Amino acid sequence: MEGKFDFLNLQFFTKASVYPGSIGTFRYRFQRTGWMNDGTIQVWVYENISFELAQDVETETFPWTEEGVEAIRAWLTEKLETRGSEPYRIWAGNHVRDGKSEEAKA
Rank of each mutant, 00 (worst) to 15 (best):
M1G: 14
E2W: 04
K4A: 14
F5D: 02
F5I: 10
L8V: 07
L10M: 10
L10E: 06
F13Y: 11
T14F: 01
K15R: 10
A16Q: 03
A16G: 02
A16P: 00
A16E: 01
A16C: 02
S17N: 12
S17A: 11
V18W: 03
Y19D: 09
Y19P: 00
S22I: 02
I23H: 09
I23M: 04
I23K: 04
T25D: 06
T25M: 07
Y28F: 15
R29D: 00
R29G: 07
R32V: 09
M36H: 09
N37Q: 12
D38I: 10
D38C: 12
D38L: 15
G39D: 08
T40C: 13
Q42N: 13
Q42D: 09
Q42S: 15
V43M: 02
V43S: 12
W44F: 14
W44N: 08
V45T: 15
Y46Q: 06
Y46G: 04
Y46L: 02
N48C: 12
N48P: 01
N48L: 05
N48K: 02
I49Y: 03
S50Q: 11
S50P: 07
F51L: 13
E52C: 07
A54P: 03
Q55D: 14
Q55Y: 10
D56I: 09
E58T: 10
T59R: 11
T59W: 05
T59Q: 14
E60I: 05
F62I: 11
F62S: 09
F62W: 11
P63F: 08
W64L: 10
T65I: 14
T65F: 11
T65R: 10
E66K: 15
E66S: 12
G68W: 07
V69I: 13
V69P: 02
A71W: 01
W75P: 03
L76V: 03
E78K: 12
E78N: 06
E78P: 00
E81T: 10
E81Y: 01
T82P: 00
T82R: 10
R83L: 14
G84S: 04
S85L: 01
E86D: 10
E86Y: 05
E86G: 02
P87S: 05
P87L: 07
I90C: 06
W91G: 09
W91V: 07
A92F: 06
G93D: 09
G93R: 09
G93K: 08
N94T: 12
N94D: 12
H95I: 11
H95C: 07
V96W: 06
R97C: 04
R97S: 12
D98Y: 05
G99L: 09
G99N: 06
G99Y: 02
G99W: 04
K100E: 13
K100L: 12
S101Y: 01
S101K: 04
S101D: 01
A104T: 06
A104M: 08
